[in-house]
């Protein structure tokens, strides 16, 4: 940052506020993490204490591992999340490009129709979705989840991305047309790299709800071989007894992949490539 434009008091206040917020946001995660390494008794006796020699225990992790299918759940969650994000970004960006770039009859109407999905939660249609999935034989397949999450993510993706694509200079696209690039090449080689920060934003927004969702896995794919991590972890939560060690361990491990994906996407958020393109 420019030295001449910063005032030390502002800097301290700003960092103080941000650090405070970070602490508050990370505290629950921290509690989950430390408790996942403690014995059951220690969890209840002193939930906020760090694990020490006496209370340290890996029992939770062992239970989770012994549960056997944990890695399968993990894999299912990963496949569903990554595939859904891929389709949301691909189709969302394509629809956004068409809406932003081409003048055709019903353009505005189409945009509004797509935006409608932002206001109406997809869960309202659960029964209809289930019927459709049964009819098409997709129940208990990962495709059921991928399709639903893609549909769920598209409205916001189209909305955000078309806004960003309108900002890509017309001259740039026209220069590419004069240079002989096809519309697909313009889309993939020129426009997509320029809206990468927006794509990353959309990916981050969509990733967490998909990864954490319990509703649709429970309804559409509750079979053992298609269970997602969130659904799989529910076996440790009973009506009368809950294996807290196992739940906390499972949750701790579930954080990891999201964290990795987040780091990947957030790197893309860094702007800079666009400068120097026009003017």
């Amino acid at each position: 940052m420019n030295k001449a434009r910063t005032n030390p008091f502002n800097t301290v206040a700003m960092h103080g506020a941000l650090i405070l917020y970070t602490l508050i946001a990370l505290f629950p995660v921290f509690v989950i993490l430390i408790n996942s390494f403690k014995t059951r008794k220690a969890i209840f006796r002193e939930p906020l204490a760090l694990p020490d020699a006496e209370s340290f225990s890996l029992i939770g992790y062992q239970t989770v591992m012994k549960q056997g299918d944990f890695f399968l759940y993990f894999q299912n969650s990963m496949i569903v999340t990554v595939a859904s994000l891929f389709f949301v970004l691909l189709f969302g960006a394509m629809a956004a490009f068409a809406l932003a770039e081409y003048r055709f009859k019903g353009n505005t109407l189409m945009g509004l129709y797509l935006a409608l999905g932002i206001m109406i939660p997809i869960r309202i249609g659960t029964v209809a979705i289930l019927e459709m999935m049964v009819a098409s034989g997709l129940v208990n397949t990962l495709w059921a989840l991928i399709l639903v999450y893609t549909a769920q993510g598209l409205p916001l993706a189209v909305f955000i991305l078309s806004e960003f694509m309108r900002q890509v200079s017309d001259d740039l696209k026209n220069a590419a047309r004069v240079d002989g690039l096809s519309e697909y090449a313009i889309f993939f080689q020129l426009v997509l790299p320029l809206v990468r920060p927006a794509m990353a934003t959309v990916a981050v927004f969509n990733m967490i709800p998909i990864w954490n969702d319990l509703w649709f896995p429970l309804i559409l794919a509750p079979a053992e071989e298609t269970k997602t991590l969130t659904l799989g972890s529910q076996v440790f939560i009973g009506q009368f007894v809950t294996d807290w060690n196992a739940v906390l361990s499972a949750l701790s491990m579930a954080i990891l992949p999201v964290l990795v994906l987040y780091v990947i996407f957030s790197r893309q958020l860094i702007r800079g490539l666009t400068s120097g393109a026009v003017k």
Binding site: D171, A175, V178, L181, P193, L273, A277, K279
Partner: peptide, 29 residues
Amino acid sequence: PPSKRGIAMVFQSYALYPHLNVRKNMSLA
């Protein structure tokens, strides 16, 4: 289509491809 008309255009806003270097900008067409 524009690319088959035997024309070349220079735009007011330059419209250079930001992700390509000068050599590639010039050779893309």
